[in-house]
Simulated scan of single mutants.
Amino acid sequence: MTSAARSTSGSGSGSGLCEGRVVLVTGAGRGLGRAHALAYAAEGACVVVNDLGVGPDGSGGSGGPAQEVVEEIRAAGGDAVAHGGDIATSEGAASLVRTALDTYGRLDVLVNNAGFLRDRMLVNLDEDAWDAVMRVHLKGHFLPLKHAGAHWRAEAKAGRAPHASVINTSSGAGLLGSVGQGNYSAAKAGILGLTFVAAAELGAYGVRVNAIAPAARTRMTEQTFADTMAAPEDGAFDTMAPENVSPLVVWLGSTASGGVTGRVFEAEAGRITVMEGWRPGPTADKGARWTPSEAGEAALKLLADAEVPQRVYGAR
């Protein structure tokens, strides 16, 4: 279909918040991405389900997980298509956008979610593990955003201003750091910087860009947090279910969140927090160049008046 998104009425028990919108979700074969894809479909969206089907460390690959999510959406009356391209390559990211346009005729939402872990303490972290995590998380956010943004810019210049939304996936590790995850923490912090720049640059074309820092039980977290992320007994609220994060992601991708851009949200269980990043704290201005001793004395006085930073995850 090339002219308009197909109707997905009856694709779930939602309210139709995203009826007719076309959504790309990367890393949507399992975990958070799968939950997001199903939640969007339940609210009436057509979903492009991207996933390479790799292991938690990025090894292997299979088209099965993406296709399984597509079939799950279709079985519920929704509309979805699988995409198995590598979104950390320019061709893969471009083909992701083309899949939405060729299949549904439009693109409204990009959810950047794909990622994996290769955890090591810094002195044991080799270049391959560093590069691999940077590639899938940071480059894997940049390239889909670049190609989707180019499409939306062209639409705006043609007089068809979109009401588009991008939701990037950071982490508490990107906000605070996490022991044993120097590569992952750096990549997730980079995603925050990318989010702020994209929000500023793409706003003129009708595109909003926000980020989430979710906490949920997925393949990437179940070993690290096995004790605290165990599934609850029957009937109890599953605080670490990925599905708890998806309602915020769906709302951010809907037209109901118009005007919300350049923001970062933590989402966990039933809690949503607006994160407030670097802001000027105590300051001193001599009006001239400091000597090293003077600078040190001034810095110590400022630190005494400053807020104590939150601890890095896993720090003792």
Rank of each mutant, 00 (worst) to 15 (best):
M275F: 02
A66R: 05
D86Y: 11
E72P: 07
L52D: 02
H36P: 00
N50C: 09
C46L: 02
W130C: 00
A154K: 14
P56I: 12
P65K: 06
L96F: 03
L24K: 03
A88N: 04
Q223W: 10
L202H: 10
V207E: 08
A267K: 02
A204R: 09
Q67P: 01
A284W: 14
V179W: 13
T8H: 01
S9C: 05
T169N: 04
A158F: 05
G64D: 12
D305K: 00
R217G: 01
K146I: 01
W290I: 08
D86A: 07
G262C: 14
T224K: 12
N124I: 10
D126P: 11
P282Y: 01
V249I: 05
L101N: 10
V70H: 04
T261Y: 04
V260H: 10
W290C: 00
T169Y: 09
G259H: 11
A129P: 04
S90W: 05
L107E: 00
E201F: 10
A156W: 14
A267R: 09
V264N: 06
L175S: 04
A39Y: 04
G16M: 13
G105C: 05
A304N: 05
A299D: 07
P232M: 11
V250D: 02
F196P: 04
T224M: 15
V136P: 00
T239C: 08
S170A: 15
F142N: 03
V133P: 05
R74K: 05
E243T: 00
T89M: 09
G253I: 10
R311M: 10
G314N: 11
A154I: 07
A88T: 08
V22Y: 06
R118N: 03
R316W: 14
E155S: 06
G61I: 10
G235S: 14
D119L: 13
N50R: 12
S62L: 09
V274I: 09
A241Q: 08
A298Q: 15
N113L: 10
V97Y: 06
R279V: 00
V48S: 07
E127I: 09
T99C: 05
A45T: 01
G287K: 08
G85E: 09
D305N: 01
R106Q: 13
A66F: 08
